[in-house]
Design a protein around this nucleic acid. Structure first.
Length: 268
DNA sequence: ATGGTCGAGGGTCGA
């Protein structure tokens, strides 16, 4: 019986419940990590999740902005709601997922988008994004014989050349600037995380999880970016059995600009 | 060339 973990920036959980339910019914991941829930915990549609079998909830929301949550069909225990950059933004929550006599520590992140101007001197949002990623260096892929770690979320950075539709045209666009991609990869390596979506995938293969709302036709324009990620500790590689990017979800009714990603592990 | 579209909230701001 595998363990499956999904991540999805849904850009308002209340508005998006119809397609979130569709995704859960059709794909039945054990755990779904959500970002940009955009509501306080009292407004989170907990009853609707419980009704379709997702009875275990870990929520960290705030009014109007940001917000993360984890919903699961199996028990989870909240470990931490970590603050970053000395702010009260709800951008992280971690849970422990018992898997037989072992357990997985699961981090769910929503990294700041960073604004439009890629200059930390004149754009405090970009400064905040760089500081946030630097602070993530402390989040390591903890593991031992009985435990492993997974880190997912909207990390708002497309690190590799083929994680964007045009490397050259996006080099000065926030999400793909060298200062971001280099610090991002340094942070990932410092934590000993494995980028599962690129594991055994050809370097030249384009991978996208996000398409802008600002295109007349997202599909025709083809201008995507890989902003959502699934990482794990190295000891999960032997049981990692693959993943899917639910590209079709970008064309559903009232879509998010991000699509879900699901990873599967042959454990539990 | 430098828009374009969403969501929350009700103040435009954040993405």
């Amino acid at each position: 019986m595998p363990l499956s973990v999904a991540t999805w920036n849904i850009n308002s959980v209340r508005l998006r419940m119809p397609i979130v339910e569709r995704f859960l019914v059709e794909n039945a991941p054990d755990v779904l990590c959500l970002q940009e829930t955009k509501c306080v915990d009292d407004q989170f549609p907990s009853a609707a999740f419980r009704k379709i079998g997702y009875r275990h909830l870990a929520i960290s929301g705030q009014k109007g902005y940001h917000g993360v949550a984890i919903v699961a069909r199996r028990p989870i225990e909240v470990v931490e709601r970590r603050r970053f950059c000395d702010k009260d933004d709800c951008r992280h929550i971690s849970v422990r997922v018992p898997v037989g006599d072992k357990s997985v520590l699961l981090h769910n992140f929503y990294v700041p988008a960073g604004g439009d101007e890629p200059d930390p001197e004149i754009n405090w949002k970009f400064r905040h994004k760089l500081d946030f990623v630097a602070e993530m260096n402390a989040v390591r892929a903890e593991h031992d014989a009985n435990s492993a770690s997974i880190l997912v979320g909207d990390l708002n950075i497309a690190p590799l050349e083929h994680d964007v539709w045009s490397h050259k045209q996006l080099l000065n666009v926030v999400s793909h600037t060298p200062v971001e991609t280099e610090s991002f990869e340094a942070m990932r390596k410092a934590g000993s995380w494995v980028d599962l979506m690129r594991h055994n995938v050809p370097y030249e293969q384009k991978l996208y999880t996000w398409w802008s709302y600002r295109a007349r036709d997202w599909e025709a324009s083809g201008r995507g970016r890989r902003l959502d990620h699934i990482w794990s500790s190295e000891n999960l590689l032997p049981v990692f059995s693959g993943y899917d990017i639910l590209r079709d979800a970008r064309g559903w009714e009232k879509p998010s600009d991000h699509v879900p990603v699901i990873a599967r592990f042959d454990i539990g």
